[in-house]
Simulated scan of single mutants.
Amino acid sequence: MPILSKETKTAVLSAAHLKTETVDVPEWGDGVTVIVSEMSGLARDAFYAKREAGKVPISESQASLLLATVVDESGALVLDESDVANLRAQGTAAIDRIANVAIRLNGMQPAAVEDAVKNSAAAPSGDSGSNSASTSASQ
């Protein structure tokens, strides 16, 4: 297995490396399955930006998650905004099953999200490196 280097980075970074999992959805018909994919960083940013717009019903949030994660065999998204109402009308057992896989694949469990927020929002320790006096020193 090659180590990422300046020489190998183009080959490594030009292909998506997203995990997928097939989920049986018998509620939608005999033998029906969906492929749930991990989101790219950009897709995850868009998903969270949409959620930050305000409180949304669980069924709408789950439908948005499915739009961002249900793919076909080639990895192309299957669902779009025109499918939201129909997804929200489906039984909760099927939607919950698919959404739970999407949440797990994307590290979106509450504890994982809290850890990510803590890690990204952590204030740097020590001197900020600026020449300005600190707030406490200037008071």
Rank of each mutant, 00 (worst) to 15 (best):
P2H: 14
I3A: 07
I3V: 10
L4C: 03
L4W: 03
L4P: 00
S5H: 01
K6W: 01
E7P: 00
K9Y: 00
A11L: 12
L13W: 07
A15L: 07
A16P: 07
H17K: 13
H17A: 11
L18Q: 08
K19D: 12
T20N: 02
T20W: 01
E21Q: 15
V23F: 08
D24Y: 12
D30F: 08
G31T: 05
V32Q: 06
I35Q: 04
S37H: 04
M39V: 04
S40H: 06
L42K: 07
L42P: 00
A43D: 10
R44S: 05
A46V: 00
F47D: 01
E52H: 13
G54H: 05
G54P: 01
K55M: 08
P57M: 11
I58S: 11
E60K: 13
E60Q: 14
S61M: 12
A63I: 13
S64I: 03
L66K: 04
L67R: 07
A68C: 13
V71G: 04
V71R: 04
D72A: 05
E73Y: 01
S74M: 06
G75H: 11
A76H: 03
L77G: 11
L77S: 08
L77Q: 10
V78Q: 05
E81G: 02
S82G: 10
S82T: 15
S82Q: 12
S82N: 12
V84W: 00
V84L: 04
A89W: 13
A89Q: 15
A89P: 08
T92Q: 15
A93S: 08
A94T: 15
A94N: 14
A94V: 15
N100G: 10
N100I: 00
A102L: 05
L105A: 01
G107C: 02
M108W: 07
Q109H: 10
V113Q: 09
E114C: 04
A116M: 06
S120K: 13
S120R: 13
P124Y: 09
S125T: 15
S125D: 14
G126I: 08
G126T: 08
S128P: 06
G129L: 11
S132D: 14
S134G: 14
T135N: 08
S136C: 05
